[in-house]
């Protein structure tokens, strides 16, 4: 083998390695609930995830960060947030109606107002919620717009929960 072809061979190896690695970590994120979905739900889930990402970047990423990491003790993380994952219905109410008052996320106390998103439709809220509940290590499965409508009917009145 000439040096040149060896180089090409080597970079191909590296490239396929990254591909493999990328894929395996992907499948790991889409775990049991994904396997259990029928074909139609899977397609819908994937679509929610893509549209949810766009909406998230437009409406939420400024504060919560591209990777849902939050900002110090000022803005709570969404990535691996015990608070978020504990009650998704509560999160849907908070995302729609805004929130204020003290909350504890992963052991840290936050107390800063989050604005409401009244202009977003149930479908959009569903896409965003599906995206944040299934990214950065979170795993929850599809939250449909029907789920969202139902959650919103049962929100408590007060803006802090």
């Amino acid at each position: 083998m000439s040096i040149k072809s060896r180089l090409i061979y080597f970079s191909l190896l590296l490239f396929s390695g990254t591909l493999l690695f990328g894929c395996s970590s992907n499948t790991k994120e889409k775990s049991d609930f994904y396997e259990a979905m029928d074909h139609r739900t899977r397609t819908r889930f994937r679509q929610y995830m893509i549209l949810g990402k766009g909406l998230y970047q437009q409406h939420c990423a400024n504060c919560h960060g591209q990777e849902g990491e939050g900002l110090e003790r000022l803005i709570p993380p969404l990535a691996k947030s015990d608070y978020l994952m504990a009650e998704i219905d509560r999160a849907v109410c908070q995302i729609t109606n805004g929130m204020k008052g003290e909350i504890v996320v992963n052991g840290v106390t936050y107390n800063q107002e989050m604005p409401a998103n009244k202009e977003l439709r149930a479908l959009e809220i569903a896409e965003i919620t599906t995206y944040i509940a299934n990214s950065w290590g979170n795993q929850r499965g599809l939250i449909s717009s029907k789920n969202v409508q139902e959650f919103l009917r049962n929100c408590t009145e007060s803006p802090s929960y």
Partner: peptide
């Protein structure tokens, strides 16, 4: 209390 670009600026 800025909802838009300030958190990014601060980060």
């Amino acid at each position: 209390s800025c909802p838009s670009i300030c958190p990014i600026m601060k980060s």
